[in-house]
Amino acid sequence: MNHAIIEYGFKPATFYTIRDMMPFILTLFNAPAYMIWPTGRLGIAALIVMAAGLGYGIWHWREYQREMKENQWFLLGILLTLAPVLTLVIGFKLPQWVAIPLPNLSLEPTGGALMILAALPALVAGWILGPISAALVGLISGICLAFWDTHSPFTIIEFVFFSTLVSVAIRQRFRTAVFRVLRRPFLASILIGGIHTLVNIAGAFFWASGSIVEKLEFAISNARSGVAALAGCFAIAGLLVEFALVALPKADGIKQKLKPSPSESSIKIRFLQYVVSLTLVLVLVLLLVNWFVAGNSAEKMVQSQLENIARTTTNKIPFFFNTG
């Protein structure tokens, strides 16, 4: 086998390197569980506003919730029980990349944990039951990740928000091509996960304390691991739910026929849709460019500091040799 690996150009050291960069996590129960709440007024206000807006969105989308009968309540109970277990077992520790610690706190930066099945109960609830059930299950999963991994209360907001959003995307019945694509769980998870960069940077910005520059630097430097962790688990769950949807196409209990989309029924909404879409794309591109520029700058800064430390240490070695 080793000859075959060498023959085709693969080196065994590569596998060990990947294993060292992304070590396997059996469970997060051994990790310390605590929450770091925002200390500034702006962070507390942002957390309250986000939670209130999320609550309003869930109430606004209540029409997509399935009527709950005995079987549905039983399924919801099972998913609520499985949520903390699947969230805290089996995953990978992501690299730190260029992450920096929280300002004004003596904590070392750590890469996020990609828990493989963390989003599966929430997406199953969103597919079969509806957005309210998805929000409840996502709340349990988000609390577990917030306490045992990220230690940020904004993780709860992000997890509930994306669980609800994917559920609405899967259960909506609009007939245009865009909404037809969004009804596929895997594609919905991928497309909606694309906007997670904005939500993650906003949450990290309001979570951190310090000046605006320190907040922005922390948010951008930690966005890579945060986005990869949450978007990755939603993509995996979306793929699994996609297979289940193909096998059980009527499990969602939706009997409503397709209806015209908002852009088909109103010219004003169609114009606003184009404007908002273009604005979001431009903002996303701008954030991605700033993200890469700030990441490269931080990496070069750390490398320069390490080189200075090494140079200073090297220059002092002859002095110690001469003086004994």
Rank of each mutant, 00 (worst) to 15 (best):
A46I: 01
N290Y: 14
N30Q: 11
L75I: 02
G324A: 08
Q65N: 14
E158T: 15
A188D: 00
C233M: 14
I128H: 04
G324D: 08
R173V: 15
Y16P: 00
T81P: 00
N308S: 13
T17K: 14
F186P: 00
M21P: 00
F92H: 10
L258K: 09
R270E: 13
K215H: 08
I309T: 14
N200D: 12
N71C: 02
K300E: 14
G77L: 09
A33K: 13
P95M: 06
Q65L: 00
K215P: 04
T14F: 15
R62H: 13
G232E: 07
S133T: 01
Q256R: 10
A208K: 03
I58H: 03
F321S: 06
I143H: 06
A247N: 02
Q305M: 10
L136V: 13
N30F: 11
N322C: 04
S163P: 01
I220E: 11
I201Y: 06
I5K: 08
S209Q: 12
G232L: 07
K93M: 11
F174Y: 15
N296E: 12
A4E: 12
E108V: 06
I267G: 07
P153E: 08
C144A: 15
F319G: 06
S141L: 05
A4M: 11
L145K: 04
S209L: 04
F243P: 03
K255W: 05
L94E: 09
F24I: 14
F74D: 04
L284S: 14
A208E: 06
P249I: 01
S304V: 02
T150R: 11
M115D: 10
I100T: 11
F154W: 12
S261W: 04
S263V: 15
A146W: 05
G194I: 03
M35G: 08
S277P: 04
L136S: 09
A45T: 15
A45E: 03
I170P: 00
L123D: 03
L240A: 14
F205A: 08
E70Y: 06
I309E: 15
G232C: 11
A134N: 02
G40I: 01
F234Q: 09
G40N: 13
L286Q: 10
I267F: 13
I170A: 05
I236W: 02
P260Y: 09
A113V: 09
K300N: 14
L216A: 14
T39Q: 15
W148I: 04
N2Q: 11
K255H: 10
L102T: 05
A229T: 07
F29I: 06
A247M: 10
A31W: 13
C233H: 14
S141I: 02
C233A: 05
K316Q: 10
V137C: 07
E108P: 01
A204D: 13
A177C: 03
E214T: 02
F320H: 09
F218W: 11
Q172T: 00
A294R: 14
P23L: 06
R175C: 08
A177S: 12
L80G: 07
G138L: 05
T87W: 14
E67C: 04
L136W: 09
L94K: 03
W37I: 12
H3Q: 13
A169G: 05
L94S: 08
